[in-house]
Write a protein that binds this DNA or RNA. Sequence first.
DNA 1: GTAGGGTTAG
Length: 781
Amino acid sequence: MHGFFHANRCRSRHVHSSSSLLFLRWERMGDPQTKLNRKASRSLLRPERGTNKKNPSTISDAEVVRWNMAISEHMRRGRCDLALHHFQTMPRRTSVSWNAMISGYLMNDRFDLARQFFDRTPDRDIVSWNVMLGGYVRNRNLSAARALFDRMPKKDVVSWNTMLSGYAQGGYVEEAREVFDRMPDKNSISWNGILSAYIQNGRIESARQLFDSKSDWETVSWNSMMAGYLRKKRLVDARYLFDRMPERDEVSWNTMITGYAQNGELLEAQKLFEDSPVRDVFTWTAMVSGYVQNGMLMEARRIFDEMSDKNSVSWNAMIAGYSQSRKMDLARELFDAMPCRNISSWNTMITGYAQNGEIDRAWSLFNEMPRRDSISWAAIIAGYAQSGHSEEALRLFIEMKRDGERMNRSTFTCCLSTCADIAALELGKQVHGRLVKAGYETGCYVGNALLAMYCKCGSIDEAYNVFIEMPDKDVVTWNTMITGYAKHGYGREALEVFESMKKTGIGPDDVTMVGVLSACSHTGLVDKGTEYFYSMEREYGITTKAQHYTCMIDLLGRAGRLEDAQLLMKKMPFEPDGATWGALLGASRIHGDTKLGEASAKRIFELEPDNSGMYVLLSNLYASSGRWNDVGKMRLIMRDRGVRKVPGYSWIEVQNKVHTFSVGDSVHPDKDKIYGFLEELDLKMKRDGYVSSTKMVLHDVEEEEKEQMLKYHSEKLAVAFGILTIPPGRPIRVIKNLRVCEDCHSAIKHISMIVKRLIILRDSNRFHHFNNGNCSCGDYW
DNA sequence: GTAGGGTTAG
């Protein structure tokens, strides 16, 4: 089934222009699952065909019950096909049979089929309605749930409770409250529903008030309240409740023990654990995972070994513990020894291997496992994406569709962030379309991923559209937008977003301030930046970290205030790291201060001897002040120390195809056209007064061929190819893995004027929007 | 068919 992969999976990560990847025509690939659906619903239209020959009226009720139970059982085991077969061949159906099909499909994540059965159910009882309502609620489609709810001919307390918990879980506390106030009769589930609506949405004080207003709470609600305090790390309040609650069940004990364990109070946890009257699997597992989460693997293992009847969850917790502490061989030992592996065990191992850089092992486990779920796919895809194999990751998405696995929120999130990594905008847009179709466009995680995708693909306007339409924005949302604007050189827009963020009541965090400061830095807003820097502790209660100092040194340095930058560096309460010195080195390059540049570079080489970018930066600095001997020396030093320059390459997406160029590329099929076009451009540029500078040659070219080769830097090739292939009026989006060199930067400025096109270049540091001879970075990068 | 506690993915 996965042979498609085996052949190609070891290819280098270097995207090759002629490779046949990313020809992603999602729509045209056909969805086997959808075909199956259609087939199923067609045969449903002739339900009596092939049914039992017996006269339906002679079938006993008991026999119908047996059929119904068989349907439920098959559904529970994930065998929708067998359940459907039973349903179609059973001699007589009751509403229970229909309901079993509906709830079974919902259980197996086949929402569309559930809805079809619901629509066809001949006489729907209130349970059918409630099951369907629950389906919408679990799918987080609250507007549809509400529409169904309002259409219900009759509602009982279950209907009301379902709607209530839907709103609660979706974060709509006010709506939940309204439902609660309107419901004609309330049971203990309703009361607990509104209580946990508050708790789950972080409104612990409202919960406490409600809890104090009434005395006859059930144990479940006591437990909820306790868990609420624990989530807020209010261990004392939780313990107070625990000590005076009228009745404690095993959940109460387990909640309290887990609370202590997860907050590092292992001694208290251990004490309660010993006092606990009933120790079930939960109790034991809570202890194991408590020790695991605090890195106490020996203790975890001791408890684990003492457990008499371990279930798969406890095994998985222990395995996760080993893999989180990079002890993959111990994890594997347990995995091999465990009696009944479930899908989570496989997923845990795959995640472990993937996160410990053993992607090949992750891959072979993924192929060995008997059944895969969306988590398995997400784990392996994230593994490839995070280890830099973006194309493999995207290829797996296609494979996942073939396998019939449905995209869910997390696979969408994962897919979008992979698109962002390689700046596959067209693909990202297609995924966006599918996301909307699947009804997942709401939700913070996936929304943030979408936003980041548009930002990183260079489509900042579309990013903003996504941003304003996101119904619930969290800190990450705001930070992504601010940083996005900053990287595109839109400092003022970034600061505007920051100002509106402050009005929402979502407090900025340290990441926000990094975004804000770098917005100021990339736009040259020195005073504004200084003001934010010195007021962040006082005004927003954010502790100033080393990163903020680095931003500030960058800001001052770029603006030419090199002495102030050095002064601040001396004053900062942290030991400067490579990034801090790097900011100073970058500033020295812009302002041609060779002496300061050398001094900074020296410190960087001590701190990060393998950072090839810094050697290149220093060489460029020497070159720009004509110190060619030193440039030569740098090259020798790099060779002696074995520092390898990362080869520079650029890529561009044209009609869903990614084309990659490296310097002096001679493999692209259109190379003659591209080179000819570049020559032509070169003549026009020279007429414009452009002089090719040989400053940045170390970048990726050998010295002898300096001038000749510079014309063929990878970004120039990609830009030329884009102009030739992308219809006029559309921007040309190029991505480069290193910083853009000065010569290319000034050449592309000229090109943008000559061909009258908008050229957007993402380099390793930021975005450059070239338009009409200017760049959005203001030559500041 | 609707509540509370343990493992895996983002």
